[in-house]
Design a protein around this nucleic acid. Sequence first.
DNA 1: GACATGTACGCTGTCGACACTCCAGAGGAG
DNA 2: CTCCTCTGGAGTGTCGACAGCGTACATGTC
Lengths: 219, 219
Amino acid sequence: MSVEPLPNIDRSTLRERVLRALRSAITSGRYRPGDHLGEVDLAASLGVSRGTVREALRHLQQEGLVMASTRGMLRVNTLSATEIRGLFRVRAALEGLAVREIVASPRRDAAVAALRESLLSLRDGDDFGAQVEADLGFHMRLCELSGNPMLVESWRHLEGRIRATIMNREPDEAPAMMTPARHSPIVDAIAAGDLDTAIAVVEEHMAAAADHFAGPAES
Amino acid sequence: MSVEPLPNIDRSTLRERVLRALRSAITSGRYRPGDHLGEVDLAASLGVSRGTVREALRHLQQEGLVMASTRGMLRVNTLSATEIRGLFRVRAALEGLAVREIVASPRRDAAVAALRESLLSLRDGDDFGAQVEADLGFHMRLCELSGNPMLVESWRHLEGRIRATIMNREPDEAPAMMTPARHSPIVDAIAAGDLDTAIAVVEEHMAAAADHFAGPAES
DNA sequence: GACATGTACGCTGTCGACACTCCAGAGGAG
DNA sequence: CTCCTCTGGAGTGTCGACAGCGTACATGTC
């Protein structure tokens, strides 16, 4: 009898796997913003029924990665400059709360260590996709370390739109936003326990990102 | 030929109507927190197919009004005290941002007027359900007046959980939270243009609500 | 040639049926 | 009496098919 512990069985439902596949296909650039996502085509491509694809698409719609167009058809979402600016202001508010809760927490040191670790992933990425993942991973980690599950939930709700925004840009333009140099000041301010500075840093970070992705201040 | 402009035809899809019906049934207390929502029963009650009910339920799940339990079954969501506290902290962050944007906006006076109007609905409600609607309507209005669609979107994403929290309480206990007296200071501070005070008022308002719904500070 | 009308096609909306999993309780072996 | 086994039933998971709606093209009329 074999001693090795048998591979874990994937108990995820078909809908969940289709969901992940579609999400990945969109955020990886396989489908471009504005592309039509037809249920029949996708169902045929993935080898599943329309109903299953349908549920996954509806989920992505609520995530903001997909938007409805005419006659109930779904397209990859694309955000206006105004929406992008608003999006990053909401992010600033949420991540500002995260910073606030981390600074107030007794586990602040552990949180700082975890964030420093997340920063490492940002350094060694020459691949654009990996760079994006590392950036979002850092900010998501920031929310998780707040210990507030609702904050994480709210941030995740925006994640699809964040990704849609980033993917709207050519890969060449964005990397400057995602360097460790832009993120370490946040961690430093948290480590110093200086709440006001930390929040100011986060807001500046988000404002710069908004300018980058929405085009410099037009409003 | 008749001159009257023909009644508007309801073009909403069956799924949308089922969604509204279920949401209303839950937030009105027709189903209690923890109740099992079986697809077959609901489909039979509503006279639609399981697939249609299913899509509506999945939507409500993402809204947080419904949660998954064992074997993929869905139940009316119920939040822990910790989650409730976190929820209201996130609300404070979001509505704080709303206040901030309104104060900074040139249309501040119009916003104040709109908020004052919303306050009126709070006054004349002896019906508990109407009172809740008026309260949530005020806060939602606050977000809308920020002019930031993403902020509204994020707030709406929490709305289901907020309602689930309120509905967890007996109707008799809550009304004190929803008096005009508790809301007008927010509007007054906005009208005065005093940002710091306004945000402090919002945070105090949310902290009090958290204590009320989660039980006084145990953490 | 321009406009109204008919018509085929593509797509989503909705449905009913079958498959599968899990839990609870009956029933037998020890 | 206790434990294991088996068998129903209650649910959800997934599927294929039909129906309805709109668009775009073809057809006919003036």
